[in-house]
C-alpha cells in the first residue's frame, strides 16, 4: 500500500474524525462532571466533616470514600453521603442535630483514615475544628429571653472555655440578669453537642463551618488595648496627648469629664474589675494638673 493512496487518506480522515468524535463526546461528559465537581465543593452548612478533615477543597481530592472512619466511630455519628444527599457522594459527614461528635480522646475515625483526608497530625481532640457553634437566634434562645435554660453551656465538653455564660442586665424587668451563652471560637471544636441538646424545636445554637461562622478583621487591624498589653505600655506618647474640652449642656455631668474652665475632673464610672474601671481618674496626658 502506498503511503498516499486514496485508501490511506480515507483511513486517516476516518481516524481523525473518530478521534474528534470521542474527544468531543467524552469532553462534554467531562465538562458536566467538572462543573458538578465544582458544585460538590459547596458543602451544605449543616453537614460537618469528621475531626481533622482537610479543608473541603483538599478533602474531596484526598478522601477515597472507603468509610473506615464511619466504621470506627463508636457512636454511629458519621455516615457516607448517599447519591441523593447534597454532599459529595460517598464522603463522610455528620449532622450535629442528629448525632453530634462525642470527641473521643483517641480519635478513632482519624486513625482509621488510610489517606490523610483526616489529618493524622490531629492527636488532641480539643484542637479539632469541625465547625464553630454560633448562637444564631437571639429572639428564641431561652437565655436571651431572660430564663435560665443553660443547656448548651452545660453539655459543652469544653465548658467555660468554648461556651461561657456572660451576665448582662435584663432591661425588660430592670431587676434581673440575663446569662447569655457566648461561644469562644478558639476553644470550640464544633462537636455539635450544644446544637443537639438545644431544647427548642429548631436549635437556636448551631455549628457552622468556620468560614460561615467567623468574621475576619482586616490584616492591618490592630486592637489597641491588646497591643498595649503586649508592649506593656501605651503605644503613644501620653505626655503629648491633649484632652479637648467636651461640649456639655449646662449643668450636665459626664463621668471622667475634665472641665478646663474649672480644672476639675468628674469621677470615672466603671464596673470594678473591667477595663473601663481602669480608666485613669486623671485625663491621660494631663497627669497631676488638676
Amino acid at each position: 500500500m502506498k503511503s498516499n493512496s486514496p485508501k490511506t487518506n480515507v483511513a486517516r480522515r476516518q481516524f481523525i474524525f473518530d478521534s474528534a468524535r470521542m474527544a468531543c463526546g467524552v469532553g462534554m461528559l467531562g465538562l458536566g462532571l467538572g462543573l458538578y465537581a465544582k458544585q460538590s465543593k459547596a458543602l451544605p452548612a449543616l453537614a460537618l466533616r469528621p475531626p481533622g478533615a482537610l479543608p473541603e477543597d483538599d478533602f474531596l481530592g484526598a478522601c477515597i470514600r472507603c468509610g473506615l472512619c464511619v466504621r470506627d466511630c463508636p457512636y454511629n455519628t458519621l455516615e457516607l453521603a448517599k447519591p441523593e444527599a447534597p454532599v459529595a457522594t460517598g464522603t463522610p459527614y455528620f449532622t450535629a442535630r442528629n448525632i453530634p461528635c462525642e470527641m473521643c480522646d483517641d480519635i478513632p475515625c482519624v486513625k482509621a483514615c488510610p489517606t490523610q483526608a483526616l489529618d493524622h497530625k490531629l492527636t488532641d481532640i480539643n484542637k479539632a475544628k469541625m465547625g464553630v457553634a454560633v448562637l444564631i437566634d437571639h429572639e428564641t434562645c431561652l437565655n436571651f429571653l431572660g430564663l435560665r435554660c443553660d443547656v448548651c453551656y452545660r453539655v459543652c465538653p469544653v465548658i467555660d472555655k468554648a461556651i461561657t455564660l456572660d451576665m448582662v442586665p435584663n432591661v425588660r424587668t430592670g431587676r434581673h440578669a440575663m446569662f447569655l451563652p457566648t461561644v469562644h471560637s478558639e476553644h470550640c471544636t464544633g462537636c455539635g453537642k450544644c446544637e443537639k441538646s438545644c431544647v427548642l424545636e429548631e436549635a437556636a445554637i448551631r455549628v457552622l463551618p468556620p468560614k460561615l461562622a467567623k468574621g475576619e478583621l482586616g490584616k492591618h487591624y490592630r486592637i489597641g488595648w491588646e497591643e498595649q498589653k503586649k508592649a506593656g505600655h501605651s503605644l503613644i506618647d501620653e505626655s503629648k496627648m491633649v484632652d479637648l474640652p467636651d461640649r456639655l449642656p449646662e449643668g450636665a455631668s459626664l463621668p471622667g469629664h475634665y472641665d478646663p474652665a474649672s480644672g476639675n475632673t468628674a469621677t470615672a464610672r466603671g464596673t470594678p474589675g473591667s477595663e473601663a474601671g481602669a480608666i485613669p481618674s486623671l485625663p491621660p496626658g494631663l497627669g497631676g494638673k488638676p
Binding site: 462532571l33 465537581a37 477543597d57 481530592g61 459529595a88 457522594t89 460517598g90
Partner: peptide
Amino acid sequence: TGVVLWELI
C-alpha cells in the same frame, strides 16, 4: 478540579 472525579458518579 482537585476532586476524585469519577467517584462523584
